[in-house]
């Protein structure tokens, strides 16, 4: 809110919150004051399912460099999976058509 740098993205998957696993519906990505990480600003991601209430949330607060490294790592792992033929061809064709 202090920076107002925030974006929402619809996602599919599961997240483990305080009590149990829940279905993820959305990720809120911001660069703003963190609640816990020892930085003035952090890359904050809240994986949420608003339909299940405000506590259905998995939160991470990352340094800028950690966030960039995480993005690179996720893409690298997905590239390896794709190269290994592990990603459903239907998913790949849907991606091509976007």
């Amino acid at each position: 809110m202090c920076t107002m740098i925030v974006e929402k993205v619809k996602i599919e998957g599961s997240g483990k919150g305080g009590a149990d696993w829940f279905t993820l519906q959305q990720a809120n990505v911001s660069y703003d004051h963190p609640f816990n990480a020892p930085y003035e600003h952090a890359l904050n991601i809240d994986f949420v399912n608003e339909a299940q209430g405000l506590s259905a949330r998995v939160a991470v607060e990352l340094s800028e460099s950690a966030a960039r490294e995480l993005v690179r790592t996720i893409l690298s792992v997905l590239d390896q999976a794709e190269a290994g033929g592990l990603i459903d061809p239907l998913v790949l064709s849907q991606r091509e058509n976007r």
Partner: peptide
Amino acid sequence: RTGHGTPEDVAVKVRADGG
């Protein structure tokens, strides 16, 4: 008006909604 929960859970919802 955002709803009730821990102050942090409420605040991140406000943050996601752009304040």
